[in-house]
Design a protein around this nucleic acid. Structure first.
Lengths: 176, 176
DNA sequence: CTCACGTTTGCAACTCGTTGCATAGGTGGT
DNA sequence: ACCACCTATGCAACGAGTTGCAAACGTGAG
């Protein structure tokens, strides 16, 4: 699918090793895409044989060598092509929504507890995002290009978290 | 993951055949969970061997027989158990977000076109949801139990669509 | 020196989801 | 009769994602 392309975007922003990519995915890009290190290694290998990335082994002090990947010209055009493709919108895949809908068929109070726990999660994440926002983009109106895009994606993460909280709160209030 | 449980919820609402389930997933429950008929057939088969559902072959006039599935007691308790489990929140997995972030590395105008197309999609879907809302739940405050839950999930679908539109609109405006 | 620990890379097995195709019953047109 | 089409069920193959484990390298503690 498109983990390839997510990696291309990440590597164009900054060349990195597999593990560094995995860590970055836990942060910024990971708002909208996640991947484990095993998956990343496998895909990087495939991308290397396809000639989308080149690799350079870098010695480190006090640590094993790392293999730093960078995007080739071929990879760059593959990315540009993909960016221009129409993208089908993926249905949400939320198991929590299924639980909300099915609450009548189990212990409703237990489901409400599950929902309350998730509200806490979303608040935590939202707090984290807002902190990033304040730290990295204190003056959004002066941004342009890559930085503006990064800001806008973080902004989307915040909007999504706020929506989850609003929705789940509405659910809890309707059932109280 | 939890397609099993989504099917249990659907079948508890109304026993159905595989194809009917696939069609319903294109609608109501499908706001937050989708599945093709092949996948549904496979999972229904597994659920039958596990004793979660029972099956009854129903003759129809002018059509091939269909196999109507219903939830067993064992399936009911499996569902109730799952409903009470905490549910980890799934990262969003949106390839559009990756494109937004990577737009600098390709043709920005092309990416904006992709975004505009998606805004249209979301508007279409939102219109559809609002129509369902008006038709099926004209008086939300009088709802309770299963119907209230169904209403609230549809409500969530609407909130999500509105958020997508708001976000993508903000993106377009920032780049104009 | 050895052992526990952390880092980086990687393999293997499994599950889940998608795509393409196949089969079988039935309708209606020519 | 034949063909095109719809409904309903299903198989097989592939690709994507997850989980558990392992190997290789280095540091620091005892």
């Amino acid at each position: 699918m498109a983990l390839e392309h997510a990696l291309l975007v990440a590597l164009r922003e900054q060349p990195a090793s597999g593990l560094e990519l995995a860590q970055r995915f836990g942060r910024s890009i990971g708002f909208f895409w996640s991947a484990t290190h095993q998956q990343i290694y496998r895909v990087l290998g495939r991308m290397e044989t396809d000639g989308w990335v080149r690799v350079e082994t870098v010695a480190q002090q006090g640590r094993p060598d790392k293999k730093v990947y960078d995007v080739t010209e071929l990879g760059g055009t593959a990315l540009a092509d993909w960016l221009a493709e129409p993208s089908a919108d993926t249905p949400l895949r939320s198991d929590l929504a299924v639980k909300l809908r099915g609450a009548s068929f189990g212990d409703r109070e237990a489901v409400l507890d599950v929902v309350r726990a998730r509200v806490v999660d979303h608040h935590t994440r939202l707090g984290h995002y807002r902190q990033l926002m304040k730290r990295d983009y204190p003056a959004p109106h002066s941004l342009a290009g890559l930085e503006l895009d990064q800001y806008l994606v973080l902004r989307g993460g915040i909007l999504m978290e706020e929506t989850w909280i609003a929705w789940l709160t509405e659910y809890l209030e309707a059932h109280s």
